[in-house]
């Protein structure tokens, strides 16, 4: 197990390094510079500014400086917001984004699994059809459409909840609904089909023959096996929720990391782009690692430290 973790750790470092490098060169390949919009500044001022942010040095030197900033995790000041450092932006934005993301994943998992299990247990009955209709709708409606829809209906027309910003639990409900519906629908469909398959397995018949209650059979014997495919797609879903937060944060005017990320790209605020990208990718890679560990916990046949299982 320890050997596996160490191996995975080095792979994670490598992945992040590749992502960082790609981001750096892609970023520099985009035409324009942070100072394009500032028409008033003269050439001398601009030169001084570039010198201040090390933009006058050749690209390889900038690259090395950039790698150094990653290792020390100090991305320096933002170009466009001189009073802020990248780290302070991350420090302010991340807790909010994380709150949104964690709630979204939790809501999606709990409601998706419940919906899927109920649909499987009432296979081909009304509840099944209803749940699957909800699921198909959830998959087909993009989160930004759903976001504007819930704002219009729930916030504007019915005036039940606030339309935007991030101040109290009430403010959190609409963005979480908008963001969680898609993943929830995917999880529900997956849980249903894998639950249906699991329920026909022989060990379920054995459990019934033992006289266990239906609840125990479902929760103890079926669910754990049925959730394996859900764990598999959890990594992809996390990535989806992460990118979803960019859009949702923008729509609901939530001051999370997504806002700074999009703003950074638009304004060519190089340190902010770097900082947020490296931060996001580190976070995602770590989550994927956790998902892999979870596999081994759920299914003892999967041994992480050995090649080829049994």
């Amino acid at each position: 197990m320890l050997k596996y973790i160490v191996k995975r750790f080095f792979l994670m470092i490598l992945t992040i390094f590749i992502i960082a490098t790609l981001t750096f060169f892609l970023m520099n390949a985009i035409p324009g510079s942070p100072f394009n919009e500032e028409k008033t500044s003269n050439a001398v001022v601009q030169q001084n500014l570039e010198k201040h942010f090390n933009l006058d040095k050749p690209l390889p030197v900038q690259y090395v400086l950039y790698l150094k900033s990653i290792i020390t995790f100090d991305f320096g000041p933002s170009i466009k917001q001189p009073t802020e450092t990248v780290n302070s932006l991350l420090g302010r934005g991340f807790p909010i984004s994380a709150e949104l993301g964690i709630w979204t994943i939790l809501v999606a998992l709990i409601s998706g699994i419940t919906l899927g299990v109920v649909a499987a247990l009432r296979h081909n009955k009304l509840i099944d059809y209803t749940a699957m209709t909800i699921a198909v709708l959830g998959i087909s409606i993009p989160n930004f459409v759903l976001a504007t829809l819930v704002i219009q209906v729930i916030a504007v027309d019915l005036k039940l909840l606030p339309a935007a910003t991030w101040n109290s639990p009430q403010h959190m409900i609409l963005p979480i609904i908008a963001l969680a519906t898609g993943p929830m629908a995917i999880i529900a469909r997956l849980t249903r089909s894998s639950m249906l398959e699991t329920l026909t397995q022989d060990y379920i018949k054995t459990a019934r023959a033992k006289g266990l209650s239906p609840f125990k059979i479902v929760v103890k014997h079926a669910l754990r096996n049925a959730l394996m495919p859900v764990v598999t797609i959890l990594g992809t879903l996390l990535a989806g929720v992460l990118t979803g937060t960019f859009v949702i944060e923008k729509i609901f005017a939530i001051p999370g990391m997504g806002k700074y990320f999009v703003q950074g790209i638009n304004q060519r605020d190089y340190p902010v782009i770097m900082g947020t990208t490296v931060f996001y990718s580190t976070f995602l890679v770590m989550m994927l690692f956790l998902v892999d560990i979870m596999y081994g916990v759920l299914d003892p046949r999967i041994k992480l430290h050995k090649k080829g299982g049994e």
Binding site: Q201, D202, Y203, T206, N225, L298, P300
Partner: peptide, 11 residues
């Protein structure tokens, strides 16, 4: 039941 390979819960 017939098949002991599948009659036990693997998890």
């Amino acid at each position: 039941f017939q098949d002991p390979m599948t009659a036990l819960n693997p998890t």
